[in-house]
Write a protein that binds this DNA or RNA. Structure first.
Lengths: 245, 245
DNA sequence: CGCCATCTTGACACGTATCAACAGGCGTGG
DNA sequence: CCACGCCTGTTGATACGTGTCAAGATGGCG
């Protein structure tokens, strides 16, 4: 049997309006597989700040990020915190095959998730190699990202860290604009940052104050301009890239 | 067809003496699949220090670490280096489905690899879901490790970093001893460190001097004792764990 | 308008990097 | 066999970057 056209009449109502339908996991599914999975899944919305996953909690479900940004973090006993990942649409959320979570997840912005029970997804993974393949590829990408970030955390200066962070967000938060940028030559970017200074600091292994000072520096050097504390404009991404070390 | 007994007569000669036969990837293979894969694979040995993978090189093969320790690292343009992972037997080596390597790999100790051409492995992965599943699980574990290490790099002090490093090595370098330790109560460990101070520094995001000073401190506090610069004895692992932050 | 949280800025302290000298191990060659 | 040089690791003095603590500034929101 050939692969179903993903636009065929079997597409479930729930999935018809899904914006990440083709790019996320579900792209690996045929119409009837999608139908099966969608029976178990439901869309949930959470406002910014919601705890989506608690550290050490039992894993009962997985999710796909459909809209917004999710922040993954770990905390030491004494309260020191490190953000270990940011998930954008259409990323997968949750530790596959795990029993307990080893990190926590918060909604950085308002988010929309497509949630599916652990057992349902794992069953589908078990007899759908294409699905498992997609999950493997996403996991490999996340591992690449994590290793890139280890370089940032271990070897870059505060100034380079902040530049690297802005560059990361600029190139991830709006995949459409980013794709255009790769083609044409409009090398500017503008985005609304879903993270507080404290979040940025926890991502970069810095303090709030140092992040603020480095942002001020980048602003004075006109590499970036900051509107309203959360909105950033980067006139020339290449210029920013040069500051990433 | 049921799963073959992995001790059956079909086991290839090459694999018969493989020490990581049951724990690594190959545990997912039946006798004849193993036979097929072993046709393409060969065992290679490299002395400590050998460059196993060059950054930006084309990926032409994968490997399994059968003996020894492999160091994965990334370098910034100006020479700053960060070790982003250590691979012990029976870890898999190489970026699955990638075109080019995005990191370099060196033999930390003398190593023995079981090497297989990229195309051969990928073909087997394509029609052996169990194999892909194993690879997914290894990748997920590596991602967990990477995220744990991000906390160490971003939020721990030099002293805690060094303690965390020693703890990591003590619990990974000799899986057999470690398994015993989990059972019984002999909480001591002794190992020969396959890394130089420079390697440790690059792993921890520190300088050689700082690593040396912190080791001296741990030695003076009798948390560890150091024989011959490369051999470490840790009388009480729990005590070391308390220093990890 | 005014409160409160968030962000910025400043002064100073502290931890780690840097630079430099020294010690020990090991192979080479006299 | 010891002298020498080299490589690795240790220790010390000092510099610098980032953390800490404190005070303002800014902006969102009732």
């Amino acid at each position: 049997m050939g692969r179903h056209d993903i636009h065929n009449s079997e597409t479930p109502a729930l999935c018809g309006s899904c914006e990440v339908r083709h790019r996320g996991l579900c792209g690996a599914l045929s119409g009837d597989q999608l139908m099966m999975l969608s029976k178990h899944s439901r869309i949930v919305r959470h406002p910014a700040g919601t705890e989506l996953i608690a550290d050490d909690s039992d894993i009962t479900s997985y999710a796909n990020v459909m809209r917004g940004v999710v922040k993954l973090s770990k905390m030491l006993d004494d309260g020191r915190q490190q953000v270990v990942g940011l998930q954008f649409a259409p990323d997968f959320l949750g530790r596959l095959f795990g029993r307990q979570n080893t990190l926590s997840a918060q909604a950085a912005s308002d988010v929309e998730l497509c949630k599916v029970p652990k057992a349902a997804l794992e069953a589908m993974v078990g007899d759908n190699p294409a699905l498992e393949h997609r999950l493997l590829e996403q996991t490999l990408r996340e591992l690449d990202d994590a290793r890139d970030w280890m370089v940032t955390l271990g070897r870059k200066t505060a100034s380079e860290k902040v530049a690297s962070f802005l560059y990361l967000v600029a190139t991830h938060i709006d995949p459409v604009a980013e794709a255009e940028r790769q083609q044409g030559e409009n090398a500017d970017a503008r985005f609304d940052l879903p993270l507080s200074r404290a979040d940025i600091a926890d991502f970069l292994g810095l303090t709030i104050e140092t992040v603020s000072r480095q942002l001020t520096r980048l602003r004075k050097e006109e590499i970036i301009s900051v509107v309203n504390n959360r909105t950033f404009v980067i006139p020339d991404l290449k210029c920013l890239a040069n500051r990433c070390g």
